[in-house]
Design a protein around this nucleic acid. Sequence first.
DNA 1: TTTTAAATGATAGTATTACTATTACAAATA
DNA 2: TATTTGTAATAGTAATACTATCATTTAAAA
Lengths: 225, 225
Amino acid sequence: MKDLIGNIQIRINDKIYLKDPETSDLGKKIIGHSILLIDEIGFEAFTFKKLATEISSTEASIYRYFENKHKLLVYLLAWYWTWLEYKLFFATNGIQDADDKLKIAIKTLTQPKELDHSYEHINEIVLHKIVVSESSKAYLTKVVDEECKEGYFSNYERLCKRVSKIILEVNPDYQYPNTLVSTIVESSNHQQFFAEHLPSITEMSSENNKDITAFTTDLVFKVLK
Amino acid sequence: MKDLIGNIQIRINDKIYLKDPETSDLGKKIIGHSILLIDEIGFEAFTFKKLATEISSTEASIYRYFENKHKLLVYLLAWYWTWLEYKLFFATNGIQDADDKLKIAIKTLTQPKELDHSYEHINEIVLHKIVVSESSKAYLTKVVDEECKEGYFSNYERLCKRVSKIILEVNPDYQYPNTLVSTIVESSNHQQFFAEHLPSITEMSSENNKDITAFTTDLVFKVLK
DNA sequence: TTTTAAATGATAGTATTACTATTACAAATA
DNA sequence: TATTTGTAATAGTAATACTATCATTTAAAA
């Protein structure tokens, strides 16, 4: 099962990039090192010039792959959500019992990520840190409506839909499956951030991710039962 | 009761600004029009130069009040959270029954805001739109730890603490009061954004805020009982 | 193997942003 | 009247977010 996921090519909406970064060494370097650099200095301070220096290339070359840094961020997130969707699919696929399936789904969403060696140029652990700290900035923009129409966020939508389905298996009468899913996915990320940076508004600890899993599982099952 | 709140001066941590905008006409104009302009063009496109043009002043004059646009955003949010805390205080103060108190608290947090004529230069409805679309950008930064230490977000923390207390009145044994509060406050804002811009991941409608109140109330009481 | 095309690198240039600094002048206050 | 305070006007700078051009390297096709 674990091998299968490695063979899956993660396809990203081709409107997000100018040139598919998967098709060249430079492209993969751009993706791999942008993850590290954004994590290191933050998205605001991140520039294509700095990235170019980092990978011994040029600003102009990077602009051949992505229109701007916003699109690059959208790409990284789309990649992440699809990767997580596969993880979720393989983790829940065989499970018969709906409750168990949902528990595993919540675990997959909330537990810390592990390095997936199938994608050599991407460090999923660092990418997840970017999801926690930067993902909101990708959609909290004035162009969100157009970008949504173009399908820039459909990878995220698909992941939510998949969890929604499981929720309806557990309780077919629950009125707000999508709302609950988007709430727990966002909450899981935010709580991780709060645990580390604004500890006074959460009981979660930054060391122990099991807290977030426990909180979310407790919440979801109480809401559904 | 309603009059009382009008007389309350909303005090903001004086490290956030260089010069208190409440102390001059220009200052109030900066606050009032920054709210409108950020709402109109988004925080990324917002600059002090554009704001200066808008209020027929100069860039340099605005820099005398705020170090940069990030601090201005932090100021606006601090103001909002304190304002909301007062609203919450006055709405829940007299209520004896803990359940009722929590219901009203959730309503205050999730229902659309109304214009509060006590603060003439501030349009609370538009400010709330900024909270929905831009507030995450205020804390999802690399300087969050220092700013947290300096108390830039204590207005938000105080609001959360107040609701947490009510939650513990309803169920003193609940393990995650702060986590639950920060989750529902963030969720309420995000769901409003999703309703308007990413409708496929929520059942909430952008016209009817009662959905969010209903979803949140249902969730919170199921979790606590 | 040569030809051709595509990808990358090197360099330059521009408009805008995010500031800082200086001076000047008017109004309020002491 | 002297002085502080607030604001305006102007200038200047480093960095950002690009675009354009052309040379060179590399890879694919003929």
